[in-house]
Write a protein that binds this DNA or RNA. Structure first.
Length: 156
DNA sequence: GCCAACGTTGGC
DNA sequence: GCCAACGTTGGC
C-alpha cells in the first residue's frame, strides 16, 4: 500500500469539509503542477492512505487521514471554462491534468504541527522538510507514515 | 505583507 | 537549449 501527503488550504477546503461531504468523498482536483500530476496519474493507487495537510492557515500541519477511493482519472475542471482551473490547452482527447477521489478516514484530535514534524530527526527526509517542499502531492515512506501517525495520536 | 524558493514562459 | 523575467507557493 502507498502513502501520500496532500496539501490543501483549509479556508478553501479542509479535513472538516471532507468529513461533511456526501459519502465523505471528494475529487482532489485543481492540481496544476506536472510532478504532482504525474503522481496522481501514475502512482496514487486505490486504497492508498493520504495525510491531509493544512497550509497557509492558523494551524499549519497534518490534520487527518483520508484514503484513495478512486485512482487517477482526468480532472474535469480543466475542461470547464467557468472553472478557476480551466486549461484551454487541455482537451478530452488529450487531458493534461488528473485527479483522484479521496474518502475521509479520521481527523486528528489536534493538528500535528509542521514545527513538530521539522523538529523530529527521524523525519528529516520527508518532502515537507526538504527540497520540493512546495509540492502539493508527495510520497511518504511507510516508516515516516508510522512515525507521524504515532506522533499525531500521542503514542510517542 | 514579506520574501525565499521554487516553477513556468518566451525571446533569442 | 539557455536564461532572464515573471508568477506562485507557503511559512512566518
Amino acid at each position: 500500500m502507498g502513502y501520500w501527503l496532500f496539501k490543501t488550504e483549509p479556508d478553501t477546503f479542509g479535513i472538516e469539509d471532507l468529513k461533511h461531504r456526501p459519502q465523505q468523498t471528494e475529487p482532489w482536483d485543481g492540481v496544476r503542477n506536472y510532478q504532482a500530476r504525474n503522481f496522481l496519474r501514475d502512482s496514487v493507487a486505490l486504497n492508498d492512505k493520504v495525510f491531509i495537510y493544512h497550509s497557509s492557515c492558523k494551524e499549519v500541519g497534518i490534520a487527518g487521514v483520508a484514503k484513495v477511493s478512486r485512482a487517477g482519472y482526468p480532472d474535469e475542471t480543466q475542461f470547464n471554462p467557468e472553472s478557476a482551473y480551466y486549461d484551454p490547452k487541455a482537451s478530452r482527447d488529450n487531458p493534461r491534468w488528473y485527479r483522484v477521489d479521496v474518502t475521509f478516514e479520521q481527523q486528528f484530535a489536534r493538528v500535528l504541527p509542521l514545527s513538530t514534524i521539522k523538529a523530529t530527526p527521524a523525519i528529516h527526509e520527508i518532502g515537507l522538510v526538504k527540497k520540493g517542499h512546495r509540492l502539493s502531492v508527495m510520497p511518504v515512506s511507510a516508516e515516516e507514515w508510522q512515525i507521524l501517525m504515532n506522533m499525531a495520536q500521542g503514542k510517542q
